[in-house]
Nucleic acid binder design. Structure first.
Lengths: 139, 139
DNA sequence: GCTATTCCTACTGTATTAGTAGGATATTAT
DNA sequence: ATAATATCCTACTAATACAGTAGGAATAGC
């Protein structure tokens, strides 16, 4: 069970914006350089973040991206979701009618438990938390 | 982040064996029927379980598969691992030298935390636990 | 008008997944 | 012996997702 590069890159990209929150727009080019991601690929990832409502874009010269909300209001779970789709370890956890055995399927219980654990972690962390952690490291 | 069918099927298959532990071999055909999995596909999954040392096979007529150890000694995490590979959400969690920034990468921390949570859950449950749960449901 | 930037859409190579297929090999029963 | 019943082994395949690449259009600042 691996995370896609999309999600890894996307998370690092929005974190860059969080770190620059309140200091004007950041360009794709800049993020791409700092995070070692292809500019063209990052463009697409930013589009995902934008359509999910996490960031705003400013077009034209001196443009770039800024967070659409303060970093303490953006949960990692939501960002994750935008890239990776729902944390659905298995179909039947979301959609009980997917399988006739769902109600008393014990393996389904296990996957549900795993899924819940992941969601809990990701929903408990905001971008602000990560920014703070990063600052601590630099001191 | 989805689970592969391999893992879902494989888990259900070995659970069938756990439920029949001590009562002689179970055939692929039987499991396939009960779990609605293609016989030919299940053959391959059983091979995975066998080479990982979880099950033993008995060839020929009246043959089939049995658990290689008692169900309380087989952890879900190990079975998961055999099918899905290590629960490596991201490369750099396992292999710190993968990325130069690893040491002070805060997103890496998050993935490590998620990974640990998953592993903890799966290592805390044995096949015997699932057998017991299933029995409880049937009462 | 020139430059810097986002925006949009299509294309592409690679790998993985979820099987299917066909037969070889081993064991039991008759 | 032979037939029947299993596992075992290897190769093939269609569909999908992933990780980009590519080229240019639209927009804003100077």
């Amino acid at each position: 069970m691996k995370l896609s590069s999309r999600t890894r890159y996307g998370m690092r990209a929005i974190l860059e914006l969080a770190e620059n929150h309140g200091e004007g727009p950041v360009q794709i080019k800049t993020i791409a350089q700092r995070q070692d991601i292809s500019v063209k690929y990052l463009e697409q990832l930013m589009a995902v973040l934008k359509s999910a409502g996490f960031v705003k874009s400013i077009r034209g010269s001196k443009g770039g991206y800024i967070l659409a909300k303060p970093p303490n209001q953006i949960k990692l779970g939501d960002v994750f979701n935008a890239f990776e789709g729902p944390v659905a370890t298995v179909e039947c956890v979301e959609n009980e009618s997917y399988c006739a055995r769902a109600a008393d399927c014990v393996t389904r219980q296990v996957w549900a438990q795993v899924q819940e654990a992941i969601e809990n972690i990701l929903q408990s962390i905001t971008l602000q938390d990560l920014v703070d952690r990063a600052k601590d490291k630099k001191v």
